[in-house]
């Protein structure tokens, strides 16, 4: 349905062979990434992995050395000019001598089509501080103001660059609540973060990058399994160890006193076998958390 957005090539983001170097430092190295309309994607990576450089190229703030960026079939600057694409930056970007409502009104005049000022203030949860000077707003309020500005053209794609950095736990939760409520419309969202729990909680898909390349691209649970798999344990009598070892994804099997412990990268199949074929009881699947996976994947690569 979303193909009507911009004709035939309607990937929300299409990065092909993207490269960017600063002097001898290669920040983005042949990056390929396709994001479909409606996806909520977390963009993860250690500091210096190339997240910000990639985002700058997606927004058209930085020209790539090689490769191509396409946003709903448009170039970044065309997509920005038509309001398909907006962004919430990590910091800055606001004038402290303007009030909240003046800032929103000013930016709204720059879009050919815009939601009303009142509506975005309400959606971002800052209608009660509309007349407050930006300089007197807290970090969390300023971030919601940036979000309000990004909402104005009702964009099809919103990019958030580490949007909750420096916010306290409550402000972060409120911020994500506002984003989440709004994304029900079907908006594509890509956010960079270094809070792994945010990626885990809010993204359908996680793109993990390191040294300017995509090193993992999957759902949060798949990424967790990817690093060292999951541990499946159960009580079972006389299991066929040889059969279990042949199951897809199984990396190790330990059997002692009617209790089996299996390391597997495909815990679903392992569990299904244990329950259906081996009549196992008290089955438990424990996963490594995203942080373990993140560290394992990014250090393995280097």
């Amino acid at each position: 349905m979303s193909n009507s957005v911009a004709g035939s090539s309607a990937l929300a983001i299409d990065l092909v062979g993207l490269k960017k170097s600063f002097g001898t430092l290669c920040a983005v190295d042949n990056m390929n990434l396709q994001i479909k309309p409606g996806e909520v994607v977390a963009f993860l990576g250690p500091n210096g992995a190339g997240k910000t450089t990639t985002i700058d190229m997606i927004l058209g703030l930085l020209p790539p050395d090689e490769g191509n960026v396409s946003i709903f079939g448009y170039s970044p600057s065309q997509a920005v000019a038509r309001g398909y694409l907006t962004a919430v930056m990590q910091s800055g970007g606001l004038l402290k001598e303007l009030s909240v409502v003046e800032t929103v009104r000013l930016i709204s005049t720059l879009f050919a089509q815009s939601l009303s000022v009142e509506e975005v203030l309400h959606r971002a949860g800052i209608d009660t501080i509309a007349n407050q000077r930006v300089g007197k707003c807290s970090g969390g309020q300023q971030q919601r103001l940036r979000f309000a500005l990004a909402l104005l053209p009702r964009p099809d794609l919103m990019i958030l660059d580490e949007p909750t950095t420096g916010m306290d736990v409550e402000a972060r939760r409120d911020f994500w609540k506002a984003i989440h409520q709004d994304s029900q419309e079907g908006r594509t969202i890509m956010f960079a973060t270094h809070y792994l729990e945010e990626a885990d909680a809010y993204a359908d898909r996680i793109v993990l990058i390191n040294k300017g390349r995509v090193i993992a691209d999957a759902s949060a649970s798949e990424i967790k399994a990817m690093s060292s798999g999951r541990v499946v344990s159960a009580d079972v009598v006389n299991p066929k160890i040889a059969d279990i070892e042949k199951l897809p994804g199984v990396t190790s099997v330990e059997y002692r006193g009617n209790h089996i412990v299996i390391n597997s990268t495909d815990s679903d199949t392992t569990a299904r076998y244990l329950l259906n074929i081996a009549n196992a009881k008290n089955l438990e699947i424990t996963s490594h958390n995203l942080e373990d996976a993140f560290i394992a994947l990014t250090t393995k690569d280097s």
């Binding site: 927004l59 703030l61 038509r82 309001g83 910091s91 800055g92 970007g93 606001l94």
Partner: peptide, 10 residues
């Protein structure tokens, strides 16, 4: 950073 903010508008 206002200049940068304006650069991601039309």
């Amino acid at each position: 950073g206002w200049s940068r903010q304006l650069r991601i508008t039309p």
